[in-house]
Simulated scan of single mutants.
Amino acid sequence: MPTGATSEEPARQPADAPGDDGTPAPTAIEDPPDPVSVLRPVIAVITTVGTPLTMITALLLYFGWARSDAQSQWMGIEVSLFRFTTQDYVLRSISTLYLPILATAIIGIAWLAAHRVLTEMIGRDGVTGTVRVICRAAMFGGLVVAILGVVLPPMTRRWEPGTVVWPLMIAVGTAVAVYGRHLSRQGQERTRPRSVIARPPDVLEAVLIGIVIAAAVFWAVQGYADIVGRGYAQRYEQSVSTLPRATAVSESPLGIDSPVVRTEQITTGPKTLYRTTGLRLLAESGGRLFLMTEGWTIQKGSIIVLEEDQSVHWQFSH
């Protein structure tokens, strides 16, 4: 090549242009979708419906309030008088919710194991006859269970466990039906390109499904809390004698009007004090003492609410 001559760069061929031997060139492979773009609709749904930790905390708080409210109403007292804090409600939930939470965790672990097996089958063999049967059984079976959870409550109003069973049927049935549909779609999307942009109807559908399941779960928690609250109230009725005996010494009579509460004068030098007996300690909350009279029952007996006062000295014993 003579000096000073410039070499020209060969012209680029289009991706699908034939090669030198006449064979078509391979089609260019598209870059995989950005993971952030794929997860964006999922993140949007999670932030809309709530994270699992937020949901669990909300359930614990709601259960604690509902249980305390049912117990208080059964005992003839308003729950707001206790002045419970958010922490108090959560702590009152843990003692009776650990078994349902443990059972839910075990079911979740089993579901994840089954989901992993089904996903591997779909990824390896596609939607086989077995997978297709599982998807249809999940969709139609879950739908039937959810419909029964809506239809049966008016017919079984006197069946107390129904307040827990029917909402759980709605929640579980909806979740199973949606999962079966998800598996079916996963098999279909295996052979077609996946869109990285979620359609608004899909996001709206996910939000509505989350609302249905969350509402059903809170309904079930309400029914379970009512049963537990009434059980605690009845347990107090049977075990009043095991509560700490409360004796008050005050500078003036406490003014408790009950046939089983006795007040006697105590003279100590120039002072006259008053001793009050016949009470049992129920609880202490929000700067208040909640006392039950001896032999308290739901039909008779009183619950006394007293503000904590430095002029009143209390002695508790068994």
Rank of each mutant, 00 (worst) to 15 (best):
M1A: 09
E8G: 06
P24W: 09
P26T: 05
P33L: 15
P35I: 09
S37A: 11
V38M: 13
T48E: 08
T48W: 12
A58H: 14
S68K: 01
A70I: 01
M75Q: 13
G76Q: 00
L81S: 08
Y89F: 15
L91N: 11
L91R: 12
Y98R: 06
L102H: 12
A103F: 13
A105D: 06
G108E: 11
A110R: 10
H115Y: 12
V131E: 08
F140P: 10
F140R: 09
G142A: 00
L143Q: 01
I147A: 15
I147Q: 01
V150P: 00
R157A: 07
R158T: 08
L168D: 02
V172I: 14
R190P: 02
P200A: 12
P201H: 00
V207C: 08
V212S: 07
I213L: 14
A216P: 12
W219H: 08
D226Q: 03
D226M: 13
I227S: 06
Y236R: 08
S241P: 02
R245C: 03
A246L: 15
V249W: 04
L254P: 03
G269W: 12
K271W: 06
R288V: 00
R288C: 01
R288G: 01
L289R: 11
F290I: 09
L291S: 01
G295V: 05
S302C: 07
S302R: 15
V305W: 11
D309A: 03
V312E: 07
H313G: 01
W314V: 10
S317A: 04
